Simulated scan of single mutants.
Amino acid sequence: MSHILQQQDQGVLHIRLNRAEKKNALSQQMYRELTEALQHATNDVAINVVLLQGTESCFSAGNDLQDFLGAGELNAAHPTVQFLYQLANFPKPLIAAVSGLAIGIGTTALLHCDLVYASDNARFQLPFTQLGLCPEAGSSLLLPKLVGYQHAAQYLLLGEAFTANEAQQMGFVNEVVSADNLTELARQKALKLASLPADAVQTSKALMKRGFQQVTLETIAAELQHFQRLLDGDECQQRIAAFFTKR
């Protein structure tokens, strides 16, 4: 059974995370399917925009830790690593509609989206240091660039959660609406983008990212090296063990 639902309509590929019983925690199979979906969207000229969404109560609680720990070293063959690079290199507009929890990769993935809309119940958190880990997905570069160093330090070093309204004030999300209106708002924005000349839109995106795209990829690579080093360390292993004990 797939936990990634896809629907294509009027130039928009709508991707939904559908693992509500696990709060949309991402397994390695889900990463594989997301990567394949983005690859397909890249190559299909009939797709102009991708809309990414979770369930009404949860966007994503981050990695499925047990599954992630069993997937081996964070090298080029690792499904999570492949997804990160596919996400960072995606050339077409990517829109996210976020409800409920967005934790870890559930938040850092949003930094690669061109437009982010959130419901008023959205809650974001980057608890990497609490697990003895460091940022990933280029967030150590992209978050300070987007919201300023002090805000980024508050969320990446302390791991404090922030609300949808706080995210909007910092420029992390474009607009906050009620949960009932979120899907329709994101869909209308996606359809509007999909109706515009695709070459012009994609060229504009590439030009906006031109000044920092290479350093983003280099940052992802550096983060992965440190993430693996910390993941192998005793302190991280103890904190992860404690996390499973609390569950």
Rank of each mutant, 00 (worst) to 15 (best):
Q39Y: 02
R123N: 13
A102P: 09
A76T: 04
R239C: 05
E136Y: 08
G72K: 10
Q82I: 04
G159V: 08
T245Q: 15
E218G: 00
L5S: 11
Q237I: 06
P197G: 11
G72M: 10
P79E: 02
A161H: 03
D9Y: 04
L69Q: 11
A198Q: 14
I105H: 00
R239W: 02
Y85T: 08
T35C: 01
T129H: 11
E160R: 13
I220F: 02
Y117I: 08
L207I: 15
E160D: 09
Q130K: 14
L143I: 12
R32K: 13
T107N: 13
L156Q: 12
L185C: 11
Q188G: 00
S195G: 10
T245K: 12
L230C: 10
T219F: 01
E21G: 06
V81D: 01
A152N: 07
V45Q: 14
L141A: 03
G233M: 03
L143P: 09
L193S: 03
G104I: 01
F128Y: 15
D114S: 11
L142G: 06
C113I: 07
G211C: 04
V98D: 01
A222V: 04
D232P: 02
V45P: 11
Q28C: 13
I220V: 11
H78S: 08
Q66F: 03
H78E: 08
T183W: 11
N89V: 02
F124D: 05
S140Y: 03
G104F: 09
E33L: 03
G171Q: 06
A242Y: 01
Q168N: 10
S119D: 12
A76V: 02
Q66A: 12
R19A: 15
Q6N: 05
A97N: 09
A221V: 00
R210Y: 06
D120F: 03
Q214K: 13
Q238H: 13
G11A: 12
I105D: 00
I47N: 04
F244Q: 13
E223K: 03
E175D: 15
P135I: 07
E160N: 12
A61T: 05
D64Q: 13
S204H: 12
L26P: 02
Q188N: 15
Q53E: 15
S140I: 07
D67F: 03
Q86D: 02
N18I: 01
D44Q: 10
N121C: 12
R239L: 15
T129R: 15
G11K: 10
E33A: 00
F124Q: 07
G11C: 13
G159Q: 11
L131E: 05
R229W: 05
N181A: 14
N121V: 07
D67A: 11
V116H: 03
D180A: 14
H226R: 06
Q168H: 10
D232Y: 07
D44P: 06
Q28F: 08
F172W: 11
A198G: 10
T163K: 05
H14K: 12
